[in-house]
């Protein structure tokens, strides 16, 4: 099956020349990505996450590039926000997927089942919520940790951030 036939059932959108978006349900993502890699989409450009807090879902975006067809295919899925688990694509894309999933685990708290090592990259001794989630109030965190309200010179920082 060529790659057009694989994604035909899922209403792909052609954004402009050589850019195609497609939304796929969560349980079919792994097989479709495996098939796409065998068809010529060998390069995982990036993997990112968007936080839709009103719907209560995370949207994971895979950007796949094919050297043969010169097409950037964007595959999106939605997973539940409270129980954020998805099967890792480390068996398909190896190290590239490993490092991206590690970053997303650290910043959003999504658990990738099957990833060999999910230790943190940037944050050491981090005991709070994962910081890129939209319900983590980073202003409050920075204000209470670094700036002293009693101090004459730092009082201004508390007054500047008026919500």
């Amino acid at each position: 099956m060529s790659w057009e036939e694989i994604i035909k059932d899922y209403n792909p959108t052609i954004q402009r020349e050589r850019r195609i978006w497609v939304n796929i349900p969560k349980d079919k993502v792994y097989d479709i990505l495996q098939n796409l890699k065998n068809e010529g989409f060998e390069h995982l450009s990036s993997l990112s996450v968007t936080d839709w807090i009103d719907e209560g879902k995370f949207e994971i975006t895979y950007h796949l590039w094919s050297y043969k067809f010169k097409v950037l295919l964007t595959v999106k899925t939605k997973i539940d926000r409270e129980e954020a688990k998805i099967k890792s694509i480390y068996p398909i894309y190896d190290r590239s997927a490993w490092i991206h999933e590690r970053e997303m685990h650290e910043l959003f708290g999504i658990e990738f089942i099957g990833n060999p090592d999910l230790s943190p990259l940037f944050l050491e001794d981090w005991n709070e919520k994962p910081p890129f989630r939209k319900d983590f109030d980073w202003r409050e965190y920075v204000r209470s940790k670094y700036y002293n309200k009693e101090n004459e010179r730092e009082k201004a920082y508390w007054e500047v951030w008026l919500k």
Partner: peptide, 12 residues
């Protein structure tokens, strides 16, 4: 803290 005065990960 410079440009990053309100960042959660840098020191001030």
């Amino acid at each position: 803290g410079g440009m990053y005065w309100d960042s959660y990960n840098t020191i001030k």
